[in-house]
Simulated scan of single mutants.
Amino acid sequence: MNNLMVFNIAAVFCMTLFYLAYFYKQFRLAQQGIRTNRLARGPKPTRTKRVETALVAATYIMAVIQYASAGLSGYLGGFSLPKDVRSTGVFLMVIGVAFFIAALITMRDNWRAGVEENQQTAMVVQGVYRISRNPAFVGFDLLYLGSALAMPNIVICLAAICCILILHQQILEEEKLLPSLFGPAYLDYKKHTPRYILFL
């Protein structure tokens, strides 16, 4: 088995674990009558709805590109990167999966994709949310960046950049609404906890 195949297999494993965790959480909460996917649904400002619609489309398109890159990279403008760089990509994917699953576990029944003005959720500040206000988004970013390094081609690199930028816009939209949901407690949390991680 050559190095290329090893990186591809590792990347596919990480992606599959990530997406299975996402849909499993949706399924478990749906069994409790909780609809977790609130992206581009319900009454929302026009800009928020546009960002969320773009996020939904980008997420599904990126997943297709990621899996296609594992076997069809040559058709997507594939290029070579040093083994260490590709190993770093897989490592970032592993960290991304860990961040995402930790966020899902910590959020418990409060996890939602998208924010609504009338949602009945509690503000979560423990666990991985002590070091990041958006650990699930950090997980997505690391998965996208890591997959672009592990299975390099022009299409996945461009898609990763687009997805990360759209995710950032989604965070900004959510930050406009969260103070009205959680009041001063959120503003204090925002002041003391980074948007992403460390100083970011």
Rank of each mutant, 00 (worst) to 15 (best):
Y75W: 12
A103G: 14
I101Q: 08
F100Q: 06
A103P: 09
V90C: 08
S87N: 13
G89R: 09
L92M: 15
F100W: 08
F79G: 03
G78L: 05
F79T: 01
F79Q: 03
K83W: 01
L92A: 09
F100V: 01
D84Q: 14
R86S: 02
L76D: 09
G71T: 10
F99D: 01
V94W: 00
K83H: 07
V97L: 14
L72G: 13
T88C: 11
R86A: 01
V97K: 10
G96I: 03
F91Y: 08
K83M: 09
L92R: 07
A102N: 05
A98C: 06
G89S: 09
G78F: 08
G78H: 07
A98W: 08
V94G: 11
S80T: 11
S73K: 09
G96R: 08
M93V: 04
D84E: 15
F99E: 02
Y75I: 00
V97E: 08
T88E: 00
G77F: 04
G74R: 11
V97G: 10
G71R: 07
F91S: 10
L92Y: 03
G77I: 03
F100P: 02
D84P: 00
F99S: 03
Y75L: 11
S87L: 14
V85A: 15
G78S: 08
S87M: 13
D84W: 14
F99K: 05
R86H: 01
I95W: 11
G78W: 06
L81T: 04
Y75Q: 05
F91R: 00
T88S: 01
D84A: 15
S87P: 00
M93L: 06
Y75E: 02
I101L: 12
G71A: 11
A103H: 11
S87R: 05
I95Q: 10
G71N: 09
K83Y: 03
F91I: 13
L76Y: 14
S73A: 14
P82S: 07
Y75G: 00
L81I: 03
F99T: 02
A98V: 13
V85T: 14
I101R: 09
V94M: 13
R86Q: 14
I101Y: 09
L81W: 05
G74K: 11
V90Q: 06
V97D: 12
F79I: 01
A98R: 02
R86Y: 00
F79L: 01
I95F: 14
P82K: 06
F79A: 02
T88H: 00
F99Y: 13
K83Q: 12
G71S: 08
P82V: 02
D84H: 10
G74Q: 12
T88Q: 00
F100E: 02
V90P: 04
A103L: 09
G74S: 10
G89N: 09
V85W: 12
S87K: 03
G77W: 05
I95Y: 03
A103D: 08
A98L: 12
F99R: 04
K83V: 13
M93C: 15
L81Y: 07
S73C: 04
I95C: 15
I95M: 15
K83E: 12
I101T: 07
L81N: 07
L72S: 07
A103T: 06
G71L: 13
V85D: 02
R86L: 00
L76H: 13
S80D: 13
G77Y: 06
G77K: 05
I95A: 15
F79Y: 14
Y75A: 10
D84N: 12
G89P: 03
G96M: 05
G96Q: 06
V97T: 14
F100H: 14
V94C: 13
I101V: 15
F79K: 02
